[in-house]
Design a protein around this nucleic acid. Structure first.
Lengths: 206, 206, 206, 206
DNA sequence: CATGAATGAGCCTTCATTCAT
DNA sequence: AATGAATGAAGGCTCATTCAT
């Protein structure tokens, strides 16, 4: 028992250091040797817990994503209305990235472009998050909140694309200073673009 | 003169090969040795023309971007109306990327995440393109086509972010099959999100 | 007692697996970890029973050799005539190797070239086998079966060398298909080379 | 030109060191780094000339073997009689090994047991040497020097096996002190084993 | 100009072995 | 007695880059 906890603590220690290194320096510039020194765990031990350097990289965001989406799911059950759901999702995405820039960096700058990761189990967790967006959009269409001629894939791509762009810009250049401040104007614009117009509503009513 | 032309031809030969290699294999997986062999120009000569491997990478999209934005600028002078301008810009971005996936790959998957590039001269060309979007948006606001309360930076980020996301998805997974087919629904949604509503117009009139 | 037996069983289990691994993959390619997994005994336990990886290797053939030479000794006491004894020895060597290629491989391809083994206790057993050959040759000389001018060391070297070469070829390339089929032509040639000729016999008689 | 010579000199320098290291320490214990330091050529340069550590190993005896067999071929054309030819072959084999123990060690203790080598081009040279033995034996049979019922493969195996055993013993234990001293008794015994007996000759005559 | 040739500098990964429990 | 866990130590190999010719 105590043993299990100790090992988990060591793994966590490695993951914590790895997150910082990968996040700050990227994959190539990060060395296992560096992570080992920093986390005061031998290189060989790192390979006890993680199969390869890339395996370690993949392990960093998986846990985070897993926890995040559980949280999201919980929140979303409490929220009524597709617009509110999208607002919440966007808020969670932006705030999570803002709070955890290294993890954001790993996801946005490294893993998003790694084909192996896109086919890995770790990516499944992330796909769940995307699905929540789809579901919120579809819910909004069904409820008449959103126009019924919008393209769900495209709409999701706009939301995700914008979030990614904002986060990436923020990571790369440091501006704008706060990501979460963008939630409201962002969601307003998006909603304006997809919401059912009064005219349309009138049409439906008639 | 003949000499100058010969050298230019050799440079072009290198850039052509480099574009293919970087685009298909990424930065790390591409070797100078590989480019040298493929382009039948010695490694040492590549270093005559390009300072470093990264310098070569930076040189690939510069020329392309330069030509692209000249073309865009020319087109935009002929187009009236901010909406039409945005439509045109989005069309040119998506179609250019679709026609030239290796160049797209270099920009979207490699350079976008390279701080050194973002401060390099090559990035200036790209910034010009972004500025055109800003100008179109601002023009639309001034002309009353777009709402006057929209955030230009955010709106541009939505446009760019969506384009980047679509292109990146297309590069990484092969879907959607056609990028240019998305131009119309994309611009429709965006315009719907930012255009001045009748109600707003009425408000303004009153 | 039961405990002792259990330990012996575990040792045997390890040795059995080790024989297969060393025989099939060689020394370097065999890992203690592999043997541990296969024999379902922990690596640490293997080190309880065997000092080092090399110690384990040395232990594999010792038991086999020990049993073999007891068998040979028993057989030889029943056989009359040096030629018959040599025939029997060669037959036992070839057939033993053929029946147990992994053990053959360990001896022929690994241990024969290991200076440490040649000075180890395990090698003593093998030397006993060689001594039997010497004794048979000497017996043949004394009895007048073999020429009295032959070099015992050289003759034994021929016998051993040929056996080793045949076994090694068989291990490395798979031909000839059967080793024991070679016993008769082999012994015939050897005997022809060392047996006392009629002329010599006549000389001795005169 | 001068360049070519310089490179050849460097290659030779590497091969010379490699021969000593591999011969004295074996394959595993030899490191490229060690060879590099000793031969005062960078590790990277060694990899310029030789693809891998194993490739370097294979290159060591190839050149030697090639020269050796040219020499043998030349000698054999001058020699009349199968017995004399075998004597010459055995002498050359034993003396060459004795003169060049490191090369002998590489061939006898390392490469003979390396399946990759046995299928490599380097091994072809060695096979040529074996074929010379076969030819001498066959010549002897046709000429009536040797019995016509002997097995060529087996006879060659005896010759090679004995040589290998003697050389290996010499390498491993230092005995016998001189290999070439064994040529005469060795060939005498072998010849006695395979030569046509007077009786046989008489039989043939009758 | 053009390049053949040389190398410095690293880094991931593997395993035999040890030791506390 | 048995082992899970931890690691020290090492080594092959790759490339971007330089420089003499």
């Amino acid at each position: 028992m105590a043993n299990f906890k100790k090992i988990e603590a060591r793994k966590t220690q490695i993951l914590k250091t790895a997150e910082r290194f990968f996040g700050e320096k990227g994959f190539q510039e990060t060395t296992i040797s560096g992570i080992a020194k920093e986390s005061k765990i031998s290189e060989a031990s790192i390979y006890e817990y993680f199969s390869t350097k890339e395996g370690l990289l993949f392990s960093v965001p998986t846990k985070n994503a897993s926890e995040l989406f559980k949280l999201m799911q919980f929140h979303l059950t409490l929220i009524r209305g597709a617009e509110n759901k999208l607002r919440s999702i966007i808020y969670i995405f932006l705030s999570t990235n803002e709070e955890n820039p290294n993890n954001a960096s790993i996801l946005m700058l490294i893993l998003k472009h790694n084909k192996k990761f896109l086919n890995s189990e770790g990516h499944l967790e992330i796909k769940k998050g995307l699905k929540m967006i789809d579901e919120a959009i579809e819910e909004g269409i069904l409820a008449g909140e959103f126009r019924n001629d919008i393209n769900v894939y495209l709409t999701r791509s706009m939301i995700i694309g914008t979030i990614e762009h904002l986060v990436t810009s923020w990571l790369m250049t440091g501006r704008p200073e706060s990501l979460v401040d963008l939630v409201d104007p962002l969601i307003d614009t998006i909603i304006a673009g997809i919401q059912a117009t009064k005219k349309q509503i009138t049409d439906m009513e008639s």
